[in-house]
């Protein structure tokens, strides 16, 4: 059987031809022919314009694209984890926990957000971020390392200044509507 004569094939071909004709029509009448000299000059001008763009893009975007990658978090060794000894990690965690406890007490004493639980919890993040940056600078580690220490302390239930571990729970998202 001649497949090209099959009605489905014929119809499909007609459909494609009509779609193609529509696609061609959609851009309007064909362009007027131009002299070869004009076409060559226009192409050359466009190439030159592209060369100018390429030069500008290379100059401005080149350094951005070549920004070197930062080193990853240091691998664990028998004495260190995340590039820090346990003593340093515990010290960092203790400071983070202290700031969290202080913020929780402030929220209660000042009745922040009229008791809106999620907003209060969200404020903890604000304090934690500021303290985390400060600690990263003080201990010459990255912010990522500080958050890894926080995670380790919560998982290992390291005690804070009040002798209690930090809560591993979060206040479920509840946006304010006012």
């Amino acid at each position: 059987m001649n497949l090209s004569a099959h009605p489905v094939f014929v119809r499909a071909r007609a459909l494609i031809a009509s779609l193609w004709a529509h696609a061609e029509r959609s851009w309007g009448a064909p362009e007027k022919p131009r002299s070869p000299v004009i076409v060559v000059l226009a192409l050359a001008a466009h190439l030159a314009a592209f060369a100018v763009f390429y030069r500008q893009a290379k100059q401005s975007l080149g350094p951005l694209i070549r920004t070197p990658a930062l080193p990853p978090v240091p691998a664990s060794t028998p004495m260190t984890r995340f590039g820090m000894t346990e003593a340093v990690r515990r010290e960092i965690f203790r400071e983070l926990a202290a700031s969290e406890i202080a913020e929780r007490q402030r929220a209660i004493s000042q009745n922040t957000w009229n008791g809106h639980a999620w907003s209060r919890f969200d404020d903890l993040g604000y304090v934690q971020r500021a303290r985390g940056r400060e600690l990263a600078m003080r201990y010459s580690v990255s912010l990522t390392q500080v958050y890894l220490v926080l995670d380790e302390g919560i998982r290992e239930r390291w005690p804070g200044p009040d002798g209690q571990p930090l809560s591993p729970l979060v206040e479920p998202l509840q946006l304010r509507t006012e």
Binding site: G125, Q128, R129, L143, D151, L166, V170
Partner: peptide, 8 residues
């Protein structure tokens, strides 16, 4: 899961 911080 990390307890996390939306600000970072």
């Amino acid at each position: 899961q990390h307890r996390g911080n939306r600000r970072d």
